[in-house]
Design a binder for these strands. Sequence first.
DNA 1: CGTAGTTTTGAGAGGCGTCAAGGAGCGTGG
DNA 2: CCACGCTCCTTGACGCCTCTCAAAACTACG
Lengths: 239, 239
Amino acid sequence: MDSQSIKVACASCNLRELCLPVGLNQEEMDRLNSVISIRRRIKRGASLFHTGDKFLSLFAVRSGFFKTHVTTVDGRNQVTGFQMTGEIIGLDGIVNDHHSCDAVALEDAEVCVMPFDQIEQLSREFTTLQHHVHKIMSREIVRDHGVMLLLGSMRAEERLAAFLLNLVQRLHARGFSQSELILRMTREEIGSYLGMKLETVSRTFSKFVEDGTIDVKQRYVHIKNTDALNLIVNPQTGR
Amino acid sequence: MDSQSIKVACASCNLRELCLPVGLNQEEMDRLNSVISIRRRIKRGASLFHTGDKFLSLFAVRSGFFKTHVTTVDGRNQVTGFQMTGEIIGLDGIVNDHHSCDAVALEDAEVCVMPFDQIEQLSREFTTLQHHVHKIMSREIVRDHGVMLLLGSMRAEERLAAFLLNLVQRLHARGFSQSELILRMTREEIGSYLGMKLETVSRTFSKFVEDGTIDVKQRYVHIKNTDALNLIVNPQTGR
DNA sequence: CGTAGTTTTGAGAGGCGTCAAGGAGCGTGG
DNA sequence: CCACGCTCCTTGACGCCTCTCAAAACTACG
């Protein structure tokens, strides 16, 4: 078993601006903390849950980096998202009481375990929490629609540009650089997420390098010209 | 103004097995009914809401057929879903208090207006309703992941076959035929949803007809061989 | 330091997009 | 009731973007 439990307090967690307790007052925070008392460590390559596992809890990423992916019976695979610090994993499991995707740690990670029945109970007491849960689920829906737009109507360069911009933007919101990042996933995983083959991902990276838009050295990416990437995603306006 | 209000009762609505009141008892049903007292009629081609509209309510389709689509600043368009009787529209608006897509009626339609603040209040009182709201949102997330799989890893024939099977399955759950259906959307809208051009949609329909898998006459489709469609979607198992 | 996994790059093929023309269905009005 | 125009659909020809197959280079890790 690669999990381990540790007591922590939401109120003192430096992720509380990103995570579930957004906007909660002291009492609400204390009560939430009494519910989220378990943390779990996931080693790189290990799964937080698998397709078909009983759904009991949501998970908040405390550190590390995850991917979620669905798999068909004939072995097709689709990465449905990459989750970083402060993001919530497991919403897919609510509807059928079983998870419908796999969540895999792409680096050693730690998550807060949030038993869903207790989250529901608490959100019946606290309007703020209830509203926040709804927003988290709605945000995931809106995000998915954005991915559908990307997969349905963009070409390879546009997809990769949009992907890189999205990653740095989320990293920047967590205090990292706006122009430099380390990819935690392989070219194949990027390709699966973006609906293209790993060779096409690699070629598109190379093209961006040739154009002077980015520097790439393996997993390290330096965005030299953000405007150029924006122009690729949005040919008309550059925004 | 193309809307009009009419009193109705959830308890006597013949969609209650598909819609929000699933599993509610009499008291809960009565209370819900007091909240969902307005219906709105939408003419074919008219919008239920537009991107940027203030989010106030969820909508349950009572009759008719809708599409939702997102639009980029440079005019790209992506249909994100088709909604039929008993399905819920508007979940995208919760996160930012404004809608992030357009909902358009593809035929004359009627929806129940469900003011979201009142839904939230009621779901603080009734666990059943709360849980049901969560499931509806989770179902949408899981559905979106399925579309991502389709867009990211399937070829034209597979996409269209999966689309047709999904449509008849949902229609069948509403008492319609398992093998015949009328498409409410154009080839272009199908193409937008499936990430392909309308010409490719038309050609793929024609191919299915040549193969003897379906009959097509404009918007009318007769599925002659469901197994063949299943085999196209799932080459290995046929399931 | 060897091996497995990952990434890059090339060459060729094919699926789907693009452009174009013609046809069918349907609502409107004469 | 028929003519007209508009929208939607079908089909063909051609080209390109991305996939496929293949080989080599690089990196990470034991």
